[in-house]
Simulated assay, not measured.
Amino acid sequence: WDGNETWLVLGGGALLVAFPMAYSIIMPALYLPFTVMLLGLIFRGVAFEFRFKAERGRRFWNLAFGIGSLVAAVSQGIVLGAYLDGITVVNGVFAGGSFDWLTPFSILTGCAVACGYALLGATWTAMKTEGALRNWAFGLADRMCIGVLFFMVAVSIGTAYLSDEIAGRWFSWPNIGWLAPVPVITALVALLLFRAVRRRDEIAPFVLTLILFLLGFIGLGVSLWPAIIPPGITIWQAAGDPGSQTFLLVGVVVLVPCILGYTAMTYWIFRGKVKADGGYH
Results as ranks from 00 to 15, higher is better:
Ile87Cys: 08
Arg58Ser: 12
Ile26Arg: 00
Ala29Gln: 01
Ala72Ile: 07
Trp124Met: 14
Ala14Arg: 05
Leu10His: 11
Ile26Trp: 01
Gly96Met: 07
Ala72Ser: 15
Arg44His: 12
Arg44Trp: 03
Leu30Val: 07
Tyr117Met: 11
Gly116Ile: 03
Ala18His: 00
Val89Cys: 11
Gln76Pro: 04
Ile25Asp: 00
Thr123Pro: 10
Met37Gly: 08
Asn62Pro: 02
Gly96Phe: 10
Val74Met: 14
Tyr23Glu: 02
Glu49Leu: 15
Ala126Asn: 10
Gly11Lys: 07
Ser75Ile: 09
Ala118Met: 11
Asp100His: 01
Val71Phe: 12
Arg56Ala: 14
Tyr117Cys: 04
Gly57Phe: 12
Phe65Thr: 05
Val93Ser: 08
Ala22Thr: 02
Ser24Tyr: 00
Arg56Trp: 13
Cys115Glu: 00
Arg51Glu: 08
Leu108Gln: 09
Phe52Lys: 12
Ser98Gly: 08
Phe19Leu: 12
Thr125Cys: 14
Leu15Pro: 01
Val113Leu: 15
Phe60Gln: 14
Val74Gly: 12
Leu108Ser: 12
Ala14Phe: 08
Leu108Thr: 08
Thr109Leu: 15
Ala114Asp: 10
Gly13Asp: 14
Gly81Asp: 12
Leu70Tyr: 10
Gly12Cys: 05
Thr125Arg: 15
Pro28Trp: 04
Ser75Met: 14
Tyr31Leu: 11
Gly13Ala: 13
Ser24Cys: 01
Gly66Asn: 15
Phe52Ile: 15
Ile25Pro: 00
Leu108Arg: 06
Leu102His: 00
Ala118Pro: 07
Leu38Pro: 02
Gly121Leu: 14
Leu102Val: 02
Met21Asn: 03
Gly40Cys: 11
Leu84Trp: 02
Leu30Ile: 06
Val71Arg: 05
Cys115Met: 10
Phe94Ile: 05
Ala112Val: 12
Ala14Ser: 15
Val90Met: 03
Tyr117Lys: 07
Gly45Ser: 03
Gly13Asn: 10
Pro28Ser: 11
Tyr31Gly: 04
Phe60Arg: 12
Thr125Ser: 14
Leu16Phe: 13
Gly45Arg: 02
Trp101Leu: 01
Arg44Gln: 13
Gly92His: 04
Gly96Glu: 10
Gly86Arg: 00
Ala122Arg: 06
